[in-house]
Nucleic acid binder design. Structure first.
Length: 206
DNA sequence: ATTTGTTGGGCGTCTCATCC
DNA sequence: GGATGAGACGCCCAACAAAT
């Protein structure tokens, strides 16, 4: 029996290593010898197949779990209820598209700067963009804080209400033409957002 | 009721032994 | 050395069971 295992090619040795500790006879790891009809080997084939399939499912689940970990908290909070696999994949797709768009946007900015078009954009619009960005960052921080330290769960109605409120406020800034008078006072958390000096501090607490 | 895990089986591809 | 057939392997899917 061990002879059979020791003669297995490298890929199968790796799988055998994975099976160590599982309680079924090592017989099941051995390929049926060539010339052995499938009928005779079928029963010995079944158990490895189960384990191989389990390993495959584990790989899938592990990847989904990693994707879940990589998702930003504010995205996770947009879903009410726990994150099922399909939702994780949907959010990942959404996030990836957003990142791609952002990358493209940054790329265009770089090109514009290189072409000396910096003055094309009005200072007012630039400030609004920066303000909007700051608002988004701050809203994200609020949601993370409430989730982590105040034990808010996405299921709660107040959480959904807050999300809705933040979205509606945020969308007011999107059209751009109207200039909002910035609320006074610096952002208390501040260190990350203090790097940009021009944008006004967004409203942070509900 | 919905989601998740398990299992058996089918299918396509690859590898290897055998034959010519 | 190339053709061929048998078997291994990985992937996918459907059906069912268990968990939530």
């Amino acid at each position: 029996m061990d002879e059979g295992i020791s003669r297995l090619p490298e890929r199968q040795l790796l799988e055998h290593r994975d099976f160590i500790g599982l309680d079924y006879p090592a017989l099941y790891m051995c390929k049926p010898k060539r010339g052995v009809k499938r009928d005779e080997s079928k029963e010995t084939y079944k158990l490895p197949h189960r384990l191989i399939e389990k390993k495959r499912r584990d790989r899938i689940n592990e990847c989904i779990a990693q994707l879940k970990d990589l998702l930003p908290e504010h995205l996770k909070l947009t879903t009410l209820g726990h994150l099922e696999k399909a939702v994780v994949l949907e959010l990942t797709l959404k996030h990836l598209k957003a990142l791609t768009a952002l990358t493209e946007q940054q790329h265009q900015k770089i090109i514009a700067l290189q072409n000396g078009e910096r003055s094309m954009k009005s200072p007012v619009q630039a400030d609004l963009d920066a303000f909007h960005s700051g608002f988004q960052t701050c809203a994200k921080e609020v949601l993370q804080y409430l989730s982590r330290f105040e034990s808010w769960t996405p299921r709660e109605q107040r959480c959904a209400q807050l999300l809705g409120h933040l979205h509606s406020i945020s969308s007011q800034f999107l059209p751009g033409p109207q200039l909002l008078s910035p609320p006074p006072g610096p952002l208390s958390k501040g260190s990350s957002s203090s790097s940009s000096s021009s944008p006004p501090a967004p409203p942070c607490a509900p």
